[in-house]
C-alpha cells in the first residue's frame, strides 16, 4: 500500500484542550473535558474506557460529524494540521472515507444488504479515487479484499453481505474502510460482542496490515486485552478525560491512575486468579443480607 507521507513527522491527530458538551434540558453538560490527545503517524493507539466515558463522541468528532444538541465548547481537533471545525462539509467529505477510514461497531449491519461486495467497494473508490478507471477500481477492490484475508476475492466480490458470516462481514467492513488507502483508520468497538476466535482473527489481521502499511490506527474498545495485542500505546478515558496514557506494557503492568488500576484489575485474564477470591473466601461479612434471610 502506498501513502503520501510528508517528510516532517508531524502528529496526524492533534486534539487540544477539547471540551464537548451535550444539551440536556436547558443546560449544556460536558461529556469531554479539556482533553488532549496526540497521535503520531504510523502509531496504533488504543482508546479504552467504559460506556459514557466520551470515547464514542471523540470518534464521531474525529470523523468530522456534527450533531444537533452537541457543541465544541472549547479547544480544537486537528487532523493533519486541519482544524476540523473550520472545514466545509465538502472538505470534510474529502477527509472522511478518503483519508480517514472508519469501521463501526456492527460491521455486518453497516453493509448495505442489497449491494454486492464489489459494488460496495467500488462505490467508495468512485467517490474518493476518481482518477481510477473501472478496471483499476475492480483490481483495487480485489486486492483489498485479498488483503483482509479472503482466499477467493473474485468469488467474494460477486456475493451479497448476508452470504458471509459475522466475522467475514466484519472483515468486509474493514476492507471498505481501507480500500481508499486512508492515513488514519478509526475502529469503534469492532470486536465487542464477537467470539474470541473472530476477535483474534481481526486483531491478527490488523497487526499484519500495520506491518505492511503506514496506516495510523485508533482502536476504541473497553477490552484492554484486545488492545494489548495491537496497540503501541493505550489511553484510558474516564468521565471525558484521558486519565492514563502510556506504552501498552506499562499501562497493563503498572497503571497509575486509580480508575486505570481498577479497569486493569477488572480484566479477566487467563494468567491470574480473580483478585477478589481472598476477600470472598474469608466471608468477611460483605453480605449481611443473605445470612439473615
Amino acid at each position: 500500500m502506498t501513502s503520501s507521507i510528508p517528510s516532517r513527522r508531524a502528529p496526524l491527530v492533534h486534539v487540544e484542550r477539547l471540551t464537548v458538551e451535550y444539551r440536556q434540558g436547558g443546560t449544556w453538560r460536558p461529556v469531554i473535558r479539556e482533553l488532549d490527545l496526540t497521535i503520531g503517524r504510523g502509531e496504533a493507539v488504543g482508546l479504552a474506557g467504559e460506556s459514557g466515558c466520551g470515547k464514542s463522541t471523540l470518534v464521531s468528532l474525529l470523523l468530522g460529524e456534527t450533531r444537533p444538541g452537541r457543541r465544541i465548547a472549547a479547544g480544537a481537533l486537528r487532523v493533519d494540521g486541519h482544524d476540523l471545525s473550520t472545514l466545509s462539509p465538502a472538505q470534510l467529505r474529502g477527509l472522511r472515507g478518503r483519508r480517514i477510514g472508519f469501521v463501526p461497531q456492527n460491521g455486518g449491519t453497516s453493509l448495505t444488504p442489497t449491494r454486492r461486495v464489489a459494488t460496495l467497494l467500488e462505490d467508495v473508490l468512485r467517490a474518493h479515487r476518481p482518477e481510477l478507471a473501472a478496471p483499476a477500481r475492480r483490481a483495487r477492490a480485489r486486492e483489498q479484499l485479498a488483503a483482509v484475508g479472503f482466499p477467493d476475492p473474485d468469488g467474494a466480490l460477486q456475493r451479497f453481505p448476508h452470504q458471509f458470516s459475522g466475522g467475514q462481514q466484519q472483515r468486509i467492513a474493514l476492507a471498505l474502510a481501507l480500500v481508499s488507502e486512508p492515513e488514519l483508520l478509526l475502529l469503534d468497538e469492532p470486536t465487542t460482542g464477537q467470539d474470541a476466535q473472530i476477535r483474534r482473527a481481526l486483531i491478527d489481521l490488523l497487526v499484519e496490515i500495520r506491518r505492511q502499511s503506514e496506516v495510523t490506527i485508533v482502536f476504541v474498545s473497553h477490552d484492554l486485552l484486545t488492545l494489548s495485542d495491537l496497540c503501541d500505546r493505550i489511553d484510558i478515558m474516564s468521565e471525558g478525560r484521558i486519565v492514563e496514557s502510556n506504552a501498552t506494557a506499562a499501562v497493563l503492568a503498572r497503571p497509575v491512575h486509580p480508575y486505570a488500576r481498577r479497569l486493569v484489575a477488572a480484566v479477566p485474564r487467563l494468567d491470574a486468579p480473580p483478585p477478589w477470591r481472598n476477600g470472598a473466601e474469608r466471608g468477611d461479612g460483605l453480605l449481611p443480607g443473605v445470612a439473615t434471610l
Binding site: R261, P275, W276, R277, N278, G279, D284
Partner: peptide
C-alpha cells in the same frame, strides 16, 4: 492496593447511580 480494597472500589464504582436517571 490490597485485593479487598480493589473489591470495595468496584462495588462502590458500580453503585454510582447513572448520570441521567
Amino acid at each position: 492496593m490490597s485485593d479487598s480494597k480493589i473489591f470495595a472500589e468496584w462495588i462502590a464504582a458500580a453503585s454510582v447511580p447513572p448520570a441521567r436517571p
